[in-house]
Design a protein around this nucleic acid. Structure first.
Length: 271
DNA sequence: ATCGCCTCCTGCGCGC
DNA sequence: TGCGCGCAGGAGGCGA
């Protein structure tokens, strides 16, 4: 389950091999992702130069002269740059082969990810245009969350996982940052004070920065591709630790389901 | 406008 | 050891 740090690490890993390169061909072995992979890309992309790879939230944006490829890794997706001749694994659904004999290979067992094409500027695309700020941007601050949360009754956990409020806070980081901020995940977003949002924003930034740093050290080899997601290396305080002692107070970590998502917290340290 | 539930899919872990 | 079942999970879509 790639979180934002894994997506950013992926971007940094693949860019040097394929940026400014010309597409030779596209192979779609299984286009049944979250949405169908548009057949048109097989015609559109060849001979086009990949101008840049950027990121917005968990979307990778591959910019070409006449449009953009938007790639989301979903839960189990990954991208690797490999030799086009490299033996296929199960679930290697799409190859974008470049004239420098490098192949961008999309792998996704659960097929929750997506590969889309848009002719318009990418930020006008329906999936990108209403996204909230990047968590590490200065516009992501306590005032922003406080303003958006007035009179909102959704839980604070669901609120920070909503990409319209801030992008890149996945299920793991939501539990972890709420623990760091001492906020109970079930609190109504509208009842969280500005002061607490200040703590929460700091926590989110800290957790994500640490993960990006980790990702950079553990996922650097994108041409070989045996990297493990950064957060596996991270010391998790609550996520997946149901019944284990809280690292701050020793009380067993609690678990519940919120909005269909596993949620972990400490009833003593989080109010 | 907001909220809560559903859906896509496979691998894994658990129980027997 | 092997089988089958149930569940997790990102996030858009939809009905209430």
């Amino acid at each position: 389950m790639p979180e934002l740090p894994e997506v950013e690490t992926t971007r940094l890993g693949i860019s040097p091999h394929i940026e400014k390169q010309t597409v030779h061909s596209v192979i779609v072995r299984n286009g049944k992702l979250r949405w169908p992979v548009p057949n048109a890309i097989k015609k559109i992309l060849p001979k086009q130069i990949l101008l840049s790879i950027t990121r917005r939230g968990k979307y990778l944006i591959l910019e070409f002269k006449n449009g953009c490829l938007l790639i989301h890794l979903g839960m189990s997706g990954s991208l690797q740059v490999v030799s086009p001749k490299k033996e296929l694994r199960k679930h290697d659904h799409v190859d974008i082969i470049f004239k420098n004999n490098q192949c961008l290979r999309y792998h996704d067992p659960r097929r929750f990810g997506s590969i889309l094409w848009t002719n318009k500027p990418p930020f006008e695309h329906k999936l990108l245009k209403d996204l909230g700020p990047e968590p590490l941007d200065k516009t992501f601050n306590a005032q922003h969350l406080w303003d958006r949360s007035r009179k909102r009754r959704v839980t604070i956990k669901q609120f920070i996982m909503d990409s319209h409020n801030v992008v890149g806070v996945g299920n793991i980081y939501a539990s972890e940052s709420l623990f760091r901020a001492g906020i109970h995940p079930r609190r109504a977003a509208g009842k969280v004070s500005l002061e607490q949002y200040n703590l929460l924003v700091k926590s989110i930034k800290t957790v994500i920065k640490a993960a990006i740093k980790q990702g950079g050290t553990t996922l650097k080899d994108f041409t070989g591709g045996d990297g493990k997601p950064g957060y596996f290396q991270q010391r998790l305080n609550v996520y997946g630790r149901k019944g284990e002692p809280c690292r701050q107070c020793d009380k067993p970590i609690s678990h519940c389901v919120m909005g269909q998502r596993a949620t972990y917290y400490c009833t003593v340290c989080q109010k």
